[in-house]
Design a protein around this nucleic acid. Sequence first.
RNA 1: AGGGCCAUAGCCAAGCGGUAAGGCAACGGACUUUGACUCCGUCAUUUCGAUAGUUCGAAUCUAUCUGGCCCUGCCA
Length: 543
Amino acid sequence: MAEINNFIKTIMENDLASGKVDKILTRFPPEPNAYLHIGHARALVTNFELAKLFNGKTNLRFDDTNPTKEDASFVEAIKEDIKWLGYEPANVFFGSDYFDETFEYAIKLIKKGLAYVCDLSPEEIAEYRGSLTEPGRNSPYRDRSVEENLQLFENMRKGMYKEGEKTLRAKIDMASPNINLRDPVLYRIIYTHHHRQGNKYCLYPMYDFAHPLQDAIEGITHSLCSLEYENHRPLYDWVIENCETPHRPQQIEFGRLNLANTILSKRYLKELVEKGKVKGYDDPRMPTLAGLRRRGYTPEAIKDFILATGLSKVNSTVDPEMLEHAIREDLKLKAKRIMAVKDPLKIVITNYPEGQVETLKALNNNENEELGYRTIAFSKYLYIEKEDFVLQKPNKHYKRLALGLEVRLYNAYFIKANDVKYDENGNIEEVYCTYDPETLSGTGFNERKPNGTIGFVEATTAKRATFNLFEPLILDDKVDAENFLERLNPNSWIQMQGFVENQEFKVEDRYQFIRDGYYIVDKDTNNDNLIFNRIVPLKTSYK
RNA sequence: AGGGCCAUAGCCAAGCGGUAAGGCAACGGACUUUGACUCCGUCAUUUCGAUAGUUCGAAUCUAUCUGGCCCUGCCA
């Protein structure tokens, strides 16, 4: 696996060396309101790998402070993705389990005169906040006494007010150039059933108040988050400072990861699913971890990809080629090479005895002999890929079959194409070839060079199979989120019916089909319905 | 425009005052029972967004400028 090296690692090294911290404790804090996607994998892998590097630990913490957006089903999906990647959180916590403790800290702020109950409506709060260029004005409720605030806050907790009627606000600075510091709301009233707490609370802390406290309570040393929270760090620090938490975590921001030509935002992934443009969050075309898993990506490939792309203080848009490279690299030595024909063309070996089926020994992976051998069939009747035959060699770079040319059938013999038979529509129906028994693979035959090597399957023993090929959902270079639905690739899922050699296939086994790509046996596969999903095509370079 | 952050090749990304790592992609070539893999080679020196300065020496320090991202939810 690639080595982890980034500015956060340096910060941790320094903090450890200076004695600022004596162990590393990170946390991965998803809000349970969406499926994890490849972009989230950066935060996930970074938090776990960095902690692991320093023999530290990582907590999984569901940031569930807004019951109107969250759902328990996402909790399970997120847990499963993390487990799939091979990470085991030291603890699984829920931000909402700290509500009582968080509440006590709010009381403390009120007593210190640093928080007050405000009766302004949402519109009024916005108006009083000022603008980017103009300072805000103090709320008329800013100077309520500590006693009155305490009483009102208690009433809020008891459910004596309607939603939106009152908030608890921090008393900081309405003239701050950082708008997050203009008396931010700490608590709001919400009467919605919470996925974990039920109807126990009607008072919910805002992210800006809850998050630093959650980090402090758990003893998080380095709280990693994305760039857009940089403006919130002064508030994060204010909360930690003024709540006088025993432990003081530090927030560090890094750039988000995007994939070129891929839409990653929650809102749009949700739209794809809800409008039926894909078959669900685990549709193999989706950039979700569930989708990539279904597609056949391995956890190792995902992790390698994340580490290979690194991270810095810029939001990066990485070329999907890098992800594809990671999965090819991982499967290279692991996947057996077998033969399949997605679009069959029948071959008749005219000098091969009718009715005879020969068994040949084939190496499972020419780069890794440990994967052993299997047997494949050969006879007078074979299938090859339609695109591997043309009547006449089109150019000197063409390395496949044509009339008068000889090619090697992978794992088998040289065959030479002599004639073709057309059907009533004028399409090529069969190709008549002769084979040379001297040229069997593995015998070291070296008298002449064939015009390339192609795959084949023996026709009488072959298994029928369905091949699913996937193209990016969106092909444009610039993904305009506003009207992406209209520009979805109509051919993003291509299905082909063909044949594979006669082997036993288990669900989720991965193979390399010679001269084509890496495939996984789909979970819907059964005895009479073999389904292969193409994980990624092989690299090709036609000249 | 008030504030914050960022800027190194087509895409990522090291570098932290001593003379531009690495990966992906691309391009030559060798090898080959996969046009794959592997191997060899090329790929920033009017060079680190631009300009000016400090210094024996600057991608690294300073100033100014330019460009990009984020911030006016009782979202996270």
